[in-house]
Design a protein around this nucleic acid. Structure first.
Length: 437
RNA sequence: UCCUGCGUAGCUCAAUCGGCAGAGCGACCGGCUGUUAACCGGUUGGUUCCAAGUUCGAGUCUUGGCGCAGGAGCCA
């Protein structure tokens, strides 16, 4: 009798006869001895197939099996120090479930056998089987869980916001257009405005889903479809907002470091700096950030301009932790942000810039809570008032100072996993001029 | 959208001054009972991105187009 098991359960079945089903990840042909590395989604198992230990036709099938074929292998599971992972299956049965065509398009990594980015992305449906990609996406799943666990444990309620929306939320950014029967509609670029309605019912809410930007941004930090978590809190000012952000981000980082240590190690990520990510985070007023830039390579940086990638990198390079920049000039920020009552040319906004050059990972602000101020802002930005009537309504029925932020999942994942490009942070990335497969 | 670079075998790349189109890997065949990117021998492999031009002759030079990458802008 044999027991069907997953490779991850191997330690519990040493000495027993078990059956594994999976895919042929690697094969070494030694004549009468075949090494087959099997992948089943839970782990990898080296299987040894000795000619004398199984029927002739089954040995022949193993001898000529192709990479990525689906097979089932039965045999005695034993501890074997010579095998990767410390366990090995000594095959007594080998059955082909489906034979993969050959050659398999993605070659095993060897000297000079690397693939180019274009080729890999065009084969993303196969590339995703690669151990590195699996490690990254497991970290992604753990990061998502950490995000939800922390928010769920701190009084936030998940309230989903619509993906099909009737109008631009922020007006300036380009939206993906679609149609809602006979009317124009757009894919959501943020759930924030709806979150602001939901806090009146729940106090603290968050939405977490895909968002869409039709910007022709062609950089390693941009995807057209990406995931963003957006918490929103009633009766909360900018400073409480920043405290929440640093607690939240620190929990996410430490949870991933603890639960995905093996994957991070497999990626070669140096986690020494990540281990230091604990509250509080350094904070710079925009004025101070400008001064810092002027002292560090940008002597003529004008007050009032937004920061580009080189500026963010210069600021973050001064710190080992993520750094807040707050009180940005009003002109460079979204229409709904609350002006600082003492300096109305600035707004109660904060960005969080990740260390090691990974750029902005969080953007947050205190929102305008006064009806008249918001109405003037909408008119000043020439936004269609009719589309925002419901949003203005929120300032008529129980308005209060409230704040929130958005965190880009893939940006954080890039930082944690040490990814050079956002394309590896999504299972099937939608990039500028690329959405196949 | 702008700047820079690249485009040659299934993949990664060579090809001198404009002069016979090459290698490694993969795949296939053979050998090997301990491989970890196995090793050894053999076989297979081409619309040199597309179009036009210069030339006795173009992978190489010119013009246009297409595709990709890196950077910038914009943002999360």
């Amino acid at each position: 009798m044999s027991t069907p098991i997953k490779i991850s359960q191997a330690a519990d079945y040493v000495g027993q006869t078990v059956t594994l089903t999976g895919w042929v990840q690697k094969r070494t042909d030694k004549g009468k001895l075949q090494f087959i590395t099997l992948r089943d989604g839970s782990g990898l198992m080296q299987c040894v197939v000795f000619k004398q230990n199984l029927p002739e036709d089954q040995f022949t099938a193993a001898r000529y099996i192709t990479l990525e074929s689906a097979v089932s292998i039965t045999g005695n599971l034993r501890a074997e120090p010579r095998a990767p992972g410390g366990f090995e299956l000594d095959a007594s049965q080998f059955h082909v479930i489906s034979r993969a065509e050959d050659p398999y398009p993605l070659a095993p990594k060897r000297d000079g056998g690397e693939h180019g980015v274009d080729f890999l992305l065009n084969h993303r449906h196969l590339w995703i089987r690669d151990p590195r990609q699996v490690a990254i996406l497991r970290i992604r799943a753990t990061l998502i869980k950490a995000i939800r666990d922390w928010l769920d444990g701190h009084g936030f309620t998940l309230v989903d916001t619509p993906i099909i929306t009737p109008a631009a939320a922020e007006g300036t950014t380009t939206l993906f257009a679609t149609e809602y029967f006979d009317e124009p509609a757009y894919l959501a670029q943020t759930g924030q405005l709806y979150n602001e309605a939901n806090i009146y019912a729940f106090g603290r809410v968050y939405c977490f889903g895909p968002t869409f930007r039709a910007e022709k941004s062609d950089t390693r930090r941009h995807a057209m479809e990406f995931w963003m978590v957006e918490p929103e809190m009633a009766f909360t000012d900018l400073y409480e907002n920043m405290e929440i952000i640093e607690q939240f981000v620190s929990y996410c980082v430490q949870t991933v470091l603890r639960e995905r240590a093996a994957e991070l190690a497999a990626l070669g990520r140096d986690t020494s700096k990540l281990a230091q990510v604990t509250p509080p985070f350094p904070r710079l007023h925009y004025d101070e950030a400008v001064e810092l830039l002027r002292r560090n390579g940008f002597p003529d940086f004008p007050w009032g301009e937004d920061f580009g990638a080189p500026h963010e990198d210069t600021i973050s390079a001064q710190f080992d932790k993520p750094v807040f920049v707050h009180h940005y000039p009003r002109e460079v920020k979204a229409f709904y942000m609350q002006p600082d009552p003492d300096r109305p040319e600035t707004v109660l906004a904060c960005d969080l810039i990740a260390p090691e050059g990974y750029g902005e990972i969080v953007g947050g602000s205190q929102r305008m809570h006064d009806y008249q101020t918001l109405l003037e802002a909408i008119e000043r930005h020439r936004l269609p008032r009719a589309a925002y009537e419901w949003y203005l309504d929120l300032r008529r029925y129980g308005t209060q100072p409230h704040s929130g932020f958005g965190m880009g999942l893939e940006r954080v994942l890039m930082w944690l996993a040490g990814l050079p490009h956002i394309r590896e942070a999504l299972p099937f990335p939608r990039l500028y001029r690329r959405f196949y497969p």
